[in-house]
């Protein structure tokens, strides 16, 4: 397999941009989905509970 310099540059300049934008959109959707709100709120508060024993 021989990938030329120009091919790599073309890939980086086209798909490199699009996949990062697509990824950013996916992350924003995940972070702001209303369905995740309860779980995120629980996660940030739960670490403050200090029972110091594994749950069984």
């Amino acid at each position: 397999m021989d990938v030329s310099h120009d091919t790599l540059v073309a890939l980086a300049k086209s798909w490199g941009l699009f996949y990062l934008i697509a990824f950013a959109v996916a992350v924003v959707i995940y972070a702001y989905r209303p369905a995740n709100r309860a779980r995120f709120n629980a996660a940030k508060k739960d670490i403050l509970e200090q029972d110091d024993r594994p749950w069984r």
Binding site: V27, V28, Y30, A31, Y32, F40, N41, A43, K44, K45, I47, L48
Partner: peptide, 11 residues
């Protein structure tokens, strides 16, 4: 205190 914004930490 819990982290100010959990969503921001993910982003």
């Amino acid at each position: 205190r819990p982290i100010f914004s959990y969503r921001l930490s993910i982003l």
